[in-house]
């Protein structure tokens, strides 16, 4: 079997897996207590999106450090792809979170520490792309973007994990709560873990595609230069 055929099978398996997750989220997991209507079911998608954004920013750091060490344009493309996906999933997590906020607390925006810190994180990584767009020279852009990404990453754990735990927040307990335990109904936990696997899978797929595209474009550019 060719690599393309194997990849195709994995992609459709991932699609089927996520259809099962969607089914599980609405028909297998019970209704959560203490939430308005069925709003808590958003957790099966909101938490994995937030997890994938953290994962993507970690990949962005790894690729940026690699670029600083080796100056390979593909590493710069890897870093940009990871940051782009991190920004996409962080935006999705913010949107799903604000929809949940509207149902639970009556407003999309509540000046909650969790909301503020995630928007600051979005701005930090949006600035990464503003920086990239502002520099025409590829090598200079790669170096500066990698240095900025390294510094940006330092803010990530602080904004995602620390700030929301310091101040009072309307946000429900995180998956692993402040007591260090997971207080979730077993069926809900199963669906959530399955969704985490599915979203990680689609991140890997998207990232691989973005890097593949960058590789083709870099090769084209080099052929054009020679």
């Amino acid at each position: 079997m060719t690599d393309k055929a194997t990849a195709g099978i994995w992609h459709w398996l991932l699609g089927a897996w996520m259809l099962l997750v969607i089914y599980g989220a609405f028909f297998y997991a019970p209704t959560a207590q203490g939430f308005v209507g069925e709003s808590a079911r958003i957790v099966f998608f909101h938490v994995p999106q937030a997890w994938v954004s953290v994962l993507a920013f970690c990949v962005n750091l790894w690729a940026s450090l690699r670029y600083l060490a080796r100056r390979d344009p593909l590493d710069d493309a890897r870093a940009a792809a990871a940051a782009r996906l991190g920004l996409l999933f962080c935006t999705l997590a913010t949107v799903t979170g604000s929809l949940f906020a509207k149902v639970m607390w009556g407003e999309f925006w509540n000046w909650d520490p969790r909301q503020i810190s995630i928007v600051i994180l979005l701005l930090v990584y949006a600035a990464y792309f503003a920086l990239r767009e502002a520099i025409a020279d590829e090598e200079r852009r790669g170096g500066l973007a990698a240095a900025y990404a390294t510094l940006a990453f330092v803010t990530m754990p602080f904004l995602v994990f620390v700030v929301p735990r310091i101040y009072f927040s309307l946000h429900p307990d995180t998956l692993i709560n402040v007591r260090g335990s997971i207080d979730m109904e077993p069926r809900m936990l199963r669906v959530l873990l399955a969704s985490l696997v599915g979203f990680t899978g689609i991140f890997v797929w998207l990232y691989t595609l973005e890097v593949k595209l960058a590789r083709v474009l870099i090769a084209r550019q080099r052929r054009g230069e020679s």
Binding site: I22, A25, G37, E38, R41, F45, L92, T96, L99
Partner: peptide, 20 residues
Amino acid sequence: PAADSLVWVAAVTTIIWVGL
């Protein structure tokens, strides 16, 4: 599950997943 707030949760999550 009850359908009161289910529709929007289903719509948002399905749109996101199908879009990706």
